[in-house]
Amino acid sequence: MESIGINWQLLVAFLINFLVLFGLLTAILYKPVLKMLDERSAKIKESLEQAEKIKEQANRSEEQIKAAIETARKEGQAIIAQASQIAEKIKEDAKGEARKEADVIIAKARDEIKLERDKSIGELRSEFANLTVLAAEKIIKESLDAQKHTKLINEVLEQSNSFKQN
């Protein structure tokens, strides 16, 4: 033991040395550096998580925007479709109205024409009857007396004058 130099005093001194170094290094090296490393890794983790969250949020909002655009597009299309439908309807309605009115006018005109014709025919018929009567009378009155004869002629003349005047 002596020849390799084991000496309890020295041993104790070296033990103390080691423990002193252990204590000092723990105080000035391990604790602060490990703390710093832990803090840093925590910070990195946190910021990564945050980045992930932000990314997610961005994705979500993008999707929302897309969805909003989609609904807006659909709504617009629906509105346009509705509007064209309404326009069509209005057009149809206007057409129908116009046709109806035209029909009414035509009918009225037809009626009027018919009335006029009927009237004309009536007048013509009465005129013709009169003339016929007159002619017949003339033929018949030949055989009658002169007085009456003259009278009849005058009357017819008068009547024809009045007819002319009419």
Partner: peptide
């Protein structure tokens, strides 16, 4: 020094 190595070994 064997004392040093012995101290760490202990």
């Amino acid at each position: 020094d064997v004392n040093l190595t012995l101290s760490i070994a202990l």
